[in-house]
C-alpha cells in the first residue's frame, strides 16, 4: 500500500498521468464506441447501441468474465476521453496506427478492412467501378501506381471524409493536390451530404460504405477503385486502451484470440458487415 502511495505521489511529481501501479484484474470495465458508424456501431431508435463491435464487445466480456458497460462517445474526443479515464476501452473501428500508438495502446487487431471510395455511378471513377484489389501501402510502388490511376478521375472533385481518422490522413496525403477535402464530425453527416450532392466522393472503410450504399437513396452510388490497407491505416481495427492497463490488454488479447479461433468474429462480421474481416495471422 505504502509503495503504491509513494508511486502515486511520484507520478504527480514527475508529471506522469498515471503510474503503473495496482495492476489487479479489473472486475468491471466501460467500453466506448461511436454509435454513428453503421454497421460497425450505431444507435437504434430506442437509444440502444448496436452493431458488429457492440456484439463483439459483449462476446469478449463474456469470455473475460467481467462486467461491461458500453457507452457512446463522439469520435473526435475518443482518445482524449480514454486517456483521462472516462472509459477503459475503445472499440470503434479505430485503426492501430503509429500516431495513435504514441498516445495509447491497442490490442491485436480484431478486424482488417480496406478503405476505399464511394462515388456516383455516372461519375468518371464510378464508371471504372469496384475492383477487388487490395493495396498495401507498405508496397510503395504498387500502391503509388494505384493512387496515380485514381488521381485524374478525382480531379476537381470534393471528397468527404471523417475528421481525425487515418482515412483523412490518407486522402490529405495523396489527393489534396487534385481534390477538395471536407472534414466531417461523423460519417453519417458525410453520408447525408453525399445524398444531397454537396460532395462527389466518400472515403471510408469499404464495409461501412457498402452498408451506406445499401440504402435506397444511394441507388445511384457505388464503391469504386481498389481498397487500401496497411501503412497509414496501421494494422487494422483494434481495441484502444491506456498504455498502463497491461493486465487488461492481456485479457482482451486472449479473448480476441479465442473469438478468432472459434469463428465468432467471422460469424459476427458476416452478420453485420456482409464480408469476412477476420484478421489473417
Amino acid at each position: 500500500m505504502k509503495i503504491s502511495r509513494i508511486a502515486a505521489i511520484a507520478s504527480v511529481l514527475f508529471g506522469l498521468v498515471q503510474a503503473a501501479v495496482a495492476q489487479e484484474t479489473p472486475k468491471a470495465i466501460t467500453i466506448a464506441t461511436e454509435g454513428a458508424y453503421a454497421p460497425w456501431n450505431f444507435t437504434t431508435a430506442d437509444g440502444k447501441l448496436d452493431g458488429f463491435e457492440v456484439d463483439l464487445a459483449n462476446d469478449l466480456c463474456g469470455r473475460m468474465k467481467i462486467e461491461c458497460k458500453i457507452v457512446a462517445q463522439d469520435w473526435d474526443g475518443m482518445i482524449p476521453a480514454l486517456t483521462v479515464g472516462k472509459f477503459d476501452v475503445i472499440m470503434a473501428s479505430m485503426f492501430i496506427t503509429e500516431k495513435r500508438l504514441k498516445i495509447i495502446d491497442f490490442t491485436q487487431p480484431y478486424a482488417v478492412d480496406p478503405s476505399g471510395f464511394a462515388v456516383a455511378k455516372d461519375s468518371e471513377l464510378g464508371k471504372v467501378g469496384i475492383s477487388n484489389e487490395r493495396f498495401k501501402l507498405e508496397n510503395e510502388a504498387s500502391a503509388q501506381a494505384a493512387i496515380d490511376k485514381l488521381k485524374p478521375l478525382l480531379k476537381g472533385k470534393i471528397i468527404g471524409v471523417q475528421a481525425a481518422t487515418a482515412n483523412l490522413e490518407f486522402v490529405k496525403k495523396y489527393f489534396s493536390d487534385v481534390a477538395e477535402i471536407r472534414e466531417y464530425k461523423t460519417t453519417e453527416q458525410h453520408d447525408l451530404d453525399l445524398a444531397a450532392g454537396r460532395i462527389d466522393a466518400l472515403f471510408a472503410q469499404q464495409t461501412a460504405l457498402a452498408a451506406t450504399l445499401g440504402k435506397p437513396e444511394f441507388s445511384d452510388y457505388t464503391l469504386a477503385g481498389p481498397g487500401f490497407v496497411g501503412g497509414l491505416f496501421g494494422l487494422g481495427s483494434g481495441a484502444g486502451i491506456r498504455k498502463e492497463d497491461i493486465k487488461l490488454k492481456d485479457m482482451l488479447n486472449g479473448a480476441i484470440d479465442a473469438a478468432i479461433a472459434d469463428g465468432t468474429i467471422k460469424t459476427l462480421s458476416l452478420k453485420w458487415l456482409k464480408s469476412d474481416v477476420t484478421p489473417v495471422k
Binding site: D76, G77, I79, P80, T83, I103, A163, A164, E183
Partner: peptide, 16 residues
C-alpha cells in the same frame, strides 16, 4: 468550415 474553432478541434485530435 475550418474557422478558428474548427482548426482548434482538429489540433486537439492531433495533439491531445
Amino acid at each position: 468550415l475550418m474557422e478558428v474553432t474548427g482548426i482548434a478541434q482538429g489540433l486537439i485530435s492531433q495533439t491531445y
